[in-house]
Design a protein around this nucleic acid. Sequence first.
RNA 1: GGAGAAAUGGCAGAGUGGUCGAAUGCGGCAGUCUUGAAAACUGUUGAGGGUCACACCUCCGGGGGUUCGAAUCCCUCUUUCUCCGCCA
Length: 423
Amino acid sequence: MLQLQAIREQKDEIIIALKKRNVDATPLLENVISLDDKRRDVQTKLDNTLAESNKLSKEIGMLFKSGKANEATILKERTVTLKEDSRTFQEELNTVAEELQALLYQIPNVPHPSVPAGNTDEDNEEIFREGDIPKLVDGALPHWELAKKYDIIDFELGVKIAGAGFPVYKGKGARLQRALIAYFLDKNTAAGYQEIQVPHLVNEISGYGTGQLPDKEGQMYHVTEDDLYLIPTAEIPITNIFRDTIVNQKDFPITYTGYTPCFRREAGSYGAHVRGLNRLHQFDKVELVRVEHPDNSYAALDGMVEHIKGILRELKLPYRILRLCGGDLGFTSALTFDFEVFSTAQDRWLEISSASNFEAYQTNRLKLRFKDENGKSQLAHTLNGSSLALPRVLAGILENYQTENGIKIPEALVPYCGFDIID
RNA sequence: GGAGAAAUGGCAGAGUGGUCGAAUGCGGCAGUCUUGAAAACUGUUGAGGGUCACACCUCCGGGGGUUCGAAUCCCUCUUUCUCCGCCA
């Protein structure tokens, strides 16, 4: 959520910046400002009424104490109208505050100056590419065929148990999955991230804290009986650890890594481009979350990008990094780098990681602050990145490492798997 | 799931209708003392709104109510603890 103060002071700059998202925020921002004016006005009226009322109450108390009941009774009558007024102002204030809140929820984060203009993923800017695209044997298969051939992932069985998009991993497929999780967590903890295990269901307030609600309501599975949401990403539970907290500046950087399954409804997205592991309702992901001093958040983002690069390099997968354009940028993000692995057999790039700086957008909702040198509370910055989304890494490995004799296991994973080929 | 108890500042813990944003202790910060540190002593120390700065307003788990006045009384929700039941 953008800060009111920023909206008031830099309205025009924000409008121009939001144009990169193809959003004309002019009416929205003007509405916000006029509502905030109104809010202040009503708040002042309410405060004054309450102040007078408080004063009278004190006087009445004193009079009663000194036995002047008659005078007290006279004063009491004066409180009647004050009470009515304060009730009216309070209701008005609640209404205005609610409207204001609803408007603020609709405004996406302001893109970083480096974010390129553009509408779709076509306009994303490739900033880095590394790794050789392997020359595959004739008759190279896409991963869903390989999964069947070697009997390591069973999509039909998942349909039987839960539905489409819930694959069952079997044998070496399951083991490879577990190996990847352990490998990623090891890489992350070696880089200083603290490992953590968090709930896979979250309450509504947590969903608002990180910005999935109300923006992506339909993307999440909702358990109505208990009013809980299945997490679409570990970002929600991990970041919400810090909701309503004032952290110590000395604790920066705060870094966490956690593995969770992720659940996404992906309503309406069916077809050839979501075959196999490309898009699922349930998948595994190891996530990175950082809470940073505002002065350091972009350096931290760069560091996160370098860290993820190191993992892909070690896995020897061909990948590229994109700077997302305004139209493709997530609602809450100021700057996002996507990582894509080249899927040779499918001849397309698959998004496997995404690293974002949310600046103070989430922390403003979370009330996540720190005390600066002057003892003033300031909003911290939050970042996150996937390291990595398992299914597409798996797809990349299966497709790029296939040989006539079977699927080779990347060297770095062999100790985790206990085998070096799937055949 | 049933019965009972509780929820107060970073922590512990007073406060049961009026001057309580809240005693006290610990912790934190600053200072005195010390070569330095510890101890001791002194001061300071919640958050938000509002203001140039004050004033002023709000917050004692959340929401609602009673009252001129609520941390204190009532209702409700949530959470925690104890006992019973059930059960990985």
